[in-house]
Amino acid sequence: MSDIVTKEQIRRPENLVYSKTKLLTDKALSYCPGCGHGTAHRILMEVIEELNAQEITIGIAPVGCSVLAYEFMNIDMQQAAHGRAPALATAVKRLMPEKIVFTYQGDGDLAAIGTAETIHACNRGENITIIFINNGIYGMTGGQMAPTTLPNMKASTCPYGRDVTTMGNPLRMTELVAQLPGVHFVTRQAVHTPSAVRKAKKALRKAFDLQKENKGLTFVEIVSNCNSGWKMTPVQSNKWMEENMFPFYPLGDIKVDGQLVK
């Protein structure tokens, strides 16, 4: 007998301390290594699993990097046209109020082309959860300026940096929708450190719990990195995000129990 421990010996059920949720498929993620989407997907599906809500949850995927979210989430899903996910979600929830409905949208989808759908779904107080991944850039199409691109930040369509005098200011959609009476819970989170991931997962859990209680719209922004679009290593991009994104998009709860957090 050798003293060397084999893989088989390690992979015993009693040694198992963590396993991937069954609500994620085995398909390899299409996201760039270092991107926050994968973690966001994981905690989202963990929350749905913890709620035992797989059979009653319908997710709506956007157009953008997460256009193929339905390939990775093992639940019934719809793939919306660019920006229109809140309109689909509105109908799904109105027609089947007993279901759990969420949209998963990037910043171009939610804060540019889908501004009207987002604001009006929020204003009607649709009893859905909107998950908003904000990385300040159009990732999938190759790094163009997004509505959330920071002032002076470079992107392929603002190669000299975003000049706010000609290109407009970054849009804080999350603060904007928090003003609307139909919106019950608004928070901004991140997934770049273990503690941030835990907080973000707690926030998602709260959003879905509130949806189950028919409290109105719940809105979870996750500020994320885009190391490819930002032309950085994953580590550099997380540092840059802390130093530049978080001051402009501060983390924490913005609206709780229908009241703005002072």
Partner: peptide, 8 residues
């Protein structure tokens, strides 16, 4: 929005 509600 209306046609996308129909889509959903």
């Amino acid at each position: 929005a209306a046609i996308n509600m129909v889509y959903g």
